[in-house]
Design a protein around this nucleic acid. Structure first.
Lengths: 334, 334
DNA sequence: GTGAAAGCGCTAACAG
DNA sequence: CTGTTAGCGCTTTCAC
């Protein structure tokens, strides 16, 4: 590494380190001429301020951490993209860590980010997160945290999310109004509140229309295989089902795969509905009806909130829940 | 922030800072009892070593930077995932930056990573990168850089890539052997070497089979819209085409969309082939023939190479090109 | 307008 | 086995 330091410049110019520092930072006290020479030599030597030293002395870095279940999921990739864009524009750098849906790894990552003295952390919980005490603890230690999408229930913090209950309710009501009655719900892990809420929305929609006895949930994960297996079970057991409402798009896609294998016609024999509006839902055949969840915007909003929190230095920890709108996208599968 | 320091512990225990440091780091010289008390109080106070200070004094951080065109592209999301997994296991943290395919932003990001004193950088070039002098410069300054996928031609450095020429040649030969003759190639920006190579592979395959006069390339970007527009042009001009070979999957997907809109049957009227094996290619109708490019593995391999380079501290800059195998995936679209 | 000195939190000689 | 000292590169009082 090159490692030109302030001292190098100072020695070369036979002035003090502090003058160089001030000149480079545009301090008003410094003579214009001095500034000029300093900047020039800095350029010539290809000087790069050592951010690490600066962070140490400022006791604060310009890095924000992200913890998501999996980077390669379209939803999270888009969210990260939104976060990175905001961060970049505000002079922050983004550290990405994935929990791979494992609680332990989530905690280790969180700790590592904290230890790295990031200015703040953006989190979407893993599906195996059984308690959020550690988040709560660090929050109280003064770490800036903003949760997005998969947010915890009983922590007072900033959260950026959608109205999962209402979105789900609306989606299922749409199905019912279309005439579907035997609607099965492929639910996600009940540890995740968004899954509980989506399930509750489904159940209430059914109940509201007098279809309580048709309520049927199959709990699985948030992944494709889960949908695939669920459909296999449903039709092995000869259940009568005329519509499937999946907790998210990957699960719906898994279901779609199996339905196609079984040569079950969509939507004629069984309707299928996802959740998230992954780009893929528009490209499969039939195109999937789903609910649009603004991933990129959620990332952006969460990052803005976090940076605000960091820069206000409030440490107020005040709860601030932002609900972003969703929109049902009606397509061919229902 | 909590900010318990070594000094706090030292004062509390009435011992020196260095003893605390050594105790915590498991230095063999330290008495077992001392270690015990120190560790205990550290735990009680919830001490977290300040990595920033440690990096400053070690003149080296445990962070590796990534610069990719766009995080939300399935290929890069998978690659990042692979990188993160390796990094995590080897005790590194990953900083992600996206160029959004802009040369300027790429340079700024590179600079920012350098300034942040990352231990090394993993790069996949943007499609507008006109020269790679700055990479070369920093490489010579001693920055560890490993390129992957979209690698530069005339820089001596570690690169992880595929054999784009051969993969493309094989793919096109397959089309020709299937009986297609009027094969058009939707090429990517010629600034990207991988695009040049894929184009060259296409042209040579055609020439080898005596189809020189049917060679036809339409240059565009690496994005969906590019494929969409290209197909529009082709059929507006009434060109006779019986197969389309796209530079990558997003472009192929764009082409697919337009072909469907035009009610052109695939593969009966026109065959379609992509490149990369994005998950989506298996879900569209018809399923797309494509060439598998091991994104996750490329990320893993690149990260391993980089960490090796970092830890060997060789600074040798020796060129080391790793070619990962690809595999054609034959599906319904051809 | 500029310099000297201290300190951010840590590690690592060098002494004992 | 433990303490003292110095220094990583930077910013920032406090002097002059």
């Amino acid at each position: 590494m090159n490692n030109i330091t302030l001292k190098n410049i100072a020695d070369l110019l036979d002035i003090s380190v502090s003058t160089v520092s001030r000149a480079l930072n545009g301090h008003p006290d410094i003579h214009a001429d001095t500034k000029k020479v300093v900047n020039q030599t800095a350029q010539e030597l290809n000087y790069h301020p050592n951010i690490v030293a600066r962070s140490l002395q400022a006791k604060r870095s310009n890095q924000i951490g992200i913890i998501v279940p999996e980077i390669k999921h379209a939803f999270f990739a888009s969210a990260i993209s939104g976060i990175e864009d905001v961060a970049y524009n505000r002079g922050y750098t983004v550290i990405v860590a994935q929990s791979n849906e494992e609680f332990e790894r989530e905690k280790i990552n969180l700790n590592s980010l904290y230890t790295n003295r990031v200015a703040g952390v953006l989190v979407s919980l893993s599906e195996t997160t059984i308690d959020t005490d550690y988040f709560d603890f660090l929050l109280k230690e003064g770490l800036n945290i903003v949760f997005f999408d998969r947010t915890p229930e009983n922590i007072e913090a900033c959260k950026v999310q959608i109205d999962d209950y209402q979105s789900s309710l609306t989606a299922v009501e749409y199905l019912i109004n279309k005439g579907y009655k035997k609607i099965v719900h492929l639910a996600g892990p009940k540890k995740l509140r968004i899954c509980q809420l989506r399930k509750q929305g489904y159940e209430d929609a059914m109940a509201n229309k007098g279809l309580e006895e048709n309520i049927k949930c199959i709990e699985g994960s948030m992944h494709e295989t889960s949908g695939y297996n669920a459909v296999e079970n449903i039709f092995n057991n000869g259940s009568m089902v005329d519509a499937i409402f999946a907790v998210n798009d990957p699960v719906a896609i898994g279901a779609l795969k199996k339905l196609k294998e079984l040569k079950i016609k969509i939507p004629d024999e069984v309707a299928l509905m996802g959740f998230s509006n992954n780009p893929i839902t528009e490209l499969v055949d039939p195109k999937l009806t789903t609910t649009e969840q603004p991933a990129y915007e959620m990332g952006k909003k969460a990052a803005e909130l976090l940076i605000e929190q960091i820069e206000s230095n409030s440490n107020s920890n005040e709860e601030n829940i932002v609900i972003l709108p969703t929109k049902m996208i009606k397509r061919e599968s229902t």
